[in-house]
């Protein structure tokens, strides 16, 4: 359970930030401050998306080696990435084979040594897979695209919300929702006005 949470630890502060925004939305009656809370909430949602797309040891998804004088003549980066993957897959296979082989040969002699050798093989495999990903690691570009447009659309919708608030202020003379409710109630019952 602890490991389950520790690997996903980063989501917990983001959720708390989300809830801070939600608290502002619910707890205040002032419409401008509500929109402030909503924009905090929105920023935190963006953070959550981007955090999912993060890869440890990765770089921003801007491919190297395709820009500048070498472009077009240098090795194709995708090819090199794939080649890197393949090479280290082979590496991994060899490592596995060696590990297994070592385990087989020594198994008859000394049990603990065999276990150690097998473990060594496993470590080699891990090292090889790590190498495979060192060929080119980029963070996931897909959340970036979604959030990039979401931010711009978010500010456009924020503008619509603020325009509504301005019109409400001009019509009611207040932007506190208690005042708005009582004004509406007065109109409906034909009382105050």
């Amino acid at each position: 359970m602890f490991e389950l949470l520790s690997e996903r630890f980063i989501y917990i502060p983001i959720i708390i930030l989300l809830m801070t925004g939600l608290y502002v939305v619910v707890a205040t009656g002032n419409l401008v401050k509500r929109l402030v809370g909503l924009s905090l909430f929105q920023t935190s949602v963006c953070l959550m998306y981007i955090a999912i797309g993060k890869v440890f040891g990765g770089t921003p998804p801007i491919l190297a080696d395709t820009h500048g004088e070498d472009a077009g003549h240098g090795p194709d980066p995708a090819a090199s990435v794939v080649a890197g993957h393949r090479a280290s897959d082979d590496h991994a296979e060899i490592a596995t084979d060696t590990g297994a082989h070592a385990a087989d040969t020594v198994a008859t002699a000394h049990e603990p040594v065999a276990a150690a050798a097998a473990e060594h093989g496993v470590q080699l495999v891990e090292h090889a897979t790590e190498l495979a990903h060192h060929a080119a690691i980029y963070s996931n570009p897909l959340p970036h695209v979604l959030i990039l447009t979401a931010i711009v659309v978010g500010v456009a919708t924020l503008a619509v919300g603020l325009a509504l608030v301005v019109r409400i202020q001009e019509a009611y003379g207040s932007i506190e929702d208690d005042d708005l409710n009582s004004a509406d109630y007065a109109v409906e019952t034909g009382g105050a006005e």
Binding site: I50, T59, P60, S139, I147, I151, V155
Partner: peptide
Amino acid sequence: DAVDVAFTEAAVGAGIGTVLM
């Protein structure tokens, strides 16, 4: 690693959004 998003957030969220509010 989301440099494009950071760019947008700094320009839109901190710039335009604050001005509008």
